[in-house]
């Protein structure tokens, strides 16, 4: 437990220092979701009204709430995959990886645990940014409920994604090549299969099979549920929560077993 807390604290410390010294970059990071949302909505309103949007998706839903949920959850998924999976490459690039390895913790634990505070802080901060907008379009009562579901989706959705992204970290540890960052082309594909751009139901059958194996699919689904629901449908929420918890166990167990092997192979190969 002490080790767990130490790693979490070191992660918090690193992020606070980074935010303190990079205010401009912090501000642009905070503006980014609004810009993304503005672009999506702007494009949407050029081609049609909110009513047209509701007719197209066949549900009575406010496009602003729908896209806020999508934006926050997609950014969170991308953040986890880049920061946990790609962190090995980043640390290697700045030359700090050997010094993280010589800490008396498993490298994988360091990468994952020290990332959790950053994820929670940045994701929740991005969600907070949208509170006025959600309250404006949904009203306070509905807004609180929908934000609650989004918080749940983002928190629960993080758990399987941590294990899932740790699998990328293993690949990067073993291959040890900074130039072959497969995340740059794999991330958009994962998001596509997860239904970030099109509903999963519209994808071909083989792509749907991939979609159901990806944890991000359920995170996105749960977050969107908050927007789609006119009234609380707890059964659906609990069903998705169950799937996310199951996937969290599966992916984290797989990552835990493979990471030890990956670390050893990387140390043998001299890839670290």
């Amino acid at each position: 437990m002490g080790r767990f807390l130490t790693l979490m604290k070191s992660g918090i410390m690193l992020d606070l220092y980074w935010l303190k010294n990079n205010r401009a970059s912090f501000i642009s990071m905070m503006l980014w979701p609004y810009l993304m949302l503005g672009l999506v909505l702007g494009m949407g309103f050029i081609f049609g009204s909110s009513e047209a949007f509701q007719r197209n998706i066949g549900l009575k839903v406010n496009p602003i709430t729908y896209f806020v949920a999508s934006t926050v959850v997609v950014m969170a998924c991308l953040g986890i995959m880049w920061d946990v999976g790609g962190n090995v490459l980043f640390l290697k690039w700045i030359g700090a990886l050997p010094y993280v390895i010589v800490a008396p913790h498993r490298i994988s634990m360091t990468l994952i645990l020290s990332y959790i505070p950053r994820y929670l802080f940045l994701t929740m901060f991005q969600l907070l940014e949208f509170i006025p907008l959600i309250f404006l379009v949904e009203g306070i009562k509905q807004g609180i409920f929908k934000l609650g579901v989004m918080v749940l989706a983002l928190t629960l959705g993080m758990l399987p994604l941590l294990g899932f992204s740790a699998l990328f970290a293993i690949v990067f540890m073993v291959t040890g090549e900074e130039e072959s960052n497969l995340l740059s082309w794999l991330n958009p594909l994962i998001l596509l299969f997860s239904g970030a751009f099109y509903p999963v139901a519209l994808l071909p059958y083989w792509a749907q099979l991939i979609a159901w194996a990806l944890p991000s699919t359920y995170t996105i689904e749960l977050a969107r549920l908050s927007a789609l629901m006119g009234s609380p449908r707890f059964a659906q929420i609990i069903f998705l929560m169950g799937i996310l918890l199951g996937m969290a166990m599966f992916y984290n167990l797989v990552a835990y077993s493979f990471i030890g092997v990956g670390e050893r192979r990387a140390l043998k190969k001299g890839a670290l």
Binding site: L14, N22, I94, G95, A96, P98
Partner: peptide, 10 residues
């Protein structure tokens, strides 16, 4: 000696 630290930290 020339790298190994976070550039944006003191």
């Amino acid at each position: 000696v020339e790298k190994g630290f976070f550039w944006k930290l003191t």
